[in-house]
Design a protein around this nucleic acid. Structure first.
Lengths: 334, 334
DNA sequence: CTCATTTCCGAAACCGGTTTCGTTAACCTC
DNA sequence: GAGGTTAACGAAACCGGTTTCGGAAATGAG
């Protein structure tokens, strides 16, 4: 069932049917009604490929997990963001195309595949260092929105939680609880996000007159649990422990928690612990993790709205900060 | 940059370029090399829309979270399955299209949207009762693979963990630990999966001469945590408790755990608890949950391979069972 | 050297839509 | 009732590829 058959059945031209599909004003209501009836009776659906070919708009958004390593759909933070993004994009009339990042199987890099599928825009998710093809995409004329990832291309924007405010919230909370010797567990990966969190934390300590001791600032190999475990073990073999530790991701915190427990340390009795992100698991560990919530719903939704503006060349702001929230659970005592 | 420009630059016809793209044998190696060089130098990528239009193959797979309520990308079990599926599909040369299930925003139901995008096949994920349009899709000529969801259409197949074997593993383990009064926490939702697990469990108890007491078989409103919490509270207000309880999902188990703890009960001291699925959170709760692991990697990978066979009209088996595995942690004692 | 094959390539129809521009008939206006 | 508008529709070019079929040149056989 194609547009030609509909035209025949209705006794009108192909162009008329097309105009009815797109609700052009120069077709009479009578004809529209009559043809629409036939369309629904025959279950006719216009082909997206044909429409894309003719209009250069696919109503498809590419989803790219941009990290060099280990970031995929199962990532507890990004999956929530993407889910909210998908929801909002659905409302705006778009569906999502997930690129298989299986090393490009001879199907070209990201910019190539965006053009191949004619996606109207892209969402890039990452907290890691980037592959070169991501930069290329950023600088292309394909609208891009980055989450936890700064973009600067002509049709790009980005959104993330206010990392410095996160650090501020943590420092304030720990200080209020009376802790003064504060440590930091970050990731070695150099990303905007990493740098901001750590820098913000250092400032927050300094502005409160708290000591910034380098041996209490440690860096794991990634943001994942096992890396947190290893890093925390290194901290334990060092000298005196800090009274409290902020981990730059909940997964790092959970790994550290395991290391502390294995060492016979009690959290928060011997050392207080704060996570970051508020992923699902942080509610389940024992003690439940005090953490900084990123508002994934809002990030995903705004990402969609910003990308929509970018696609329609409206006044999209280049960057957007979302405010974090402190979630107090048990890992810092009271 | 389109095929015509490439043809001009290379001094050959459009058909020749097309044949080179598709590696037809009736073009000399010399010409292929020469033209391919030009293609890569100009960064030419053929348009998927045009190819789909001409060939009726899009190399796109539709992903549908088919549940009536609340099943989306954040579902801890399905997201792992989809991730493995995506990986394997990438190897096979396909990308994934996630349909926004925002109540179809006037964009037609699932079959319509599959035709709209010309997807080559679909993966349906669900453990719930189905919408009518899913049945329609199953019966259409679009290749479909169901996960935790029985399909019977002409080009359909399905895959899931052996639910009866799961029940058998649980019963065996609990019996070996000396528990004889066993309860079950399932979901009210009528799905193949639910029925099989419960029926298998009843049989496993009966075959061991263990009592099957109806007041110990309770049903939550869904498979989610809060429903488990509520259902467990109902169990607590009843008479004597069973010695051990199998929850048909880890989320239900975690909810029940919360209810027990609030009631001052100790797990496994006062009541042993077994989960199901082995989602991430089951490792983090206290006590860590003894559970039945579903091999999500294998399910996702096989789903991809089966769907590929279906698409290429090869000998796809209509159904596939994956074996479960008992994961012993702390929630049943020793 | 002649005739039959192969090898290699191109013309053209086609996939299913969109959009510009022109045409016709009906409607005003004075 | 002549001339100017407007409303409603269609012809045809176009989007970027694929594929069938046919033809010319090169090759092989006898």
């Amino acid at each position: 069932m194609n547009i030609k058959k509909i035209a025949q059945l209705a006794g009108v031209s192909v162009s008329t049917v097309s105009k009815i599909i797109n609700d052009y004003p120069d077709i009479s209501e009578d004809t529209k009604l009559r043809v629409r009836k036939i369309m629904s009776e025959t279950g006719y659906i216009p082909s997206n490929s044909a429409q894309t070919l003719a209009t250069k708009r696919s109503h498809l958004i590419g989803v790219i997990f941009a990290g060099k390593l280990n970031i995929d759909m199962t990532h507890p933070f990004f999956v929530e963001v993407v889910n909210a993004f998908k929801k909002q994009m659905g409302i705006l009339g778009y569906d999502l195309l997930f690129f298989s990042n299986e090393k490009f199987q001879g199907r070209g890099d990201y910019p190539a595949r965006c053009r191949h599928f004619h996606v109207d825009g892209c969402i890039l998710l990452s907290g890691e260092e980037l592959e070169p093809s991501i930069r290329e995409l950023d600088e292309s004329d394909i609208p891009c929105i980055g989450v936890d990832l700064t973009l600067s291309g002509p049709l790009s924007a980005h959104i993330n939680t206010d990392n410095r405010e996160m650090a501020e919230l943590v420092a304030r909370h720990l200080a209020e609880l009376g802790y003064s010797e504060l440590g930091y567990l970050g990731s070695r990966e150099s990303s905007e996000m990493s740098r901001e969190r750590e820098a913000g934390y250092r400032e927050a300590l300094a502005s409160r007159g708290l000591p910034v001791r380098e041996e209490w600032f440690i860096h794991a190999d990634s943001f994942f649990e096992d890396a947190g475990y290893e890093a925390a073990k290194r901290l334990l073999t060092g000298g005196a422990l800090p009274q409290a530790l902020w981990a730059a991701s909940d997964q790092l915190a959970i790994g550290a928690l395991r290391a502390f427990r294995e060492a016979g340390l009690c959290v928060p009795g011997d050392i207080a612990l704060v996570g970051c992100d508020d992923i699902e698991a942080s509610r389940y560990v024992q003690p439940a993790l005090t953490t900084i919530r990123q508002d994934k719903e809002t990030i995903g939704k705004y990402a969609a709205l910003m990308l929509f503006d970018l696609i329609n060349e409206q006044n999209a702001s280049a960057a957007q900060l979302v405010q974090p929230e402190l979630i107090v659970r048990g890992s810092c005592g009271t």
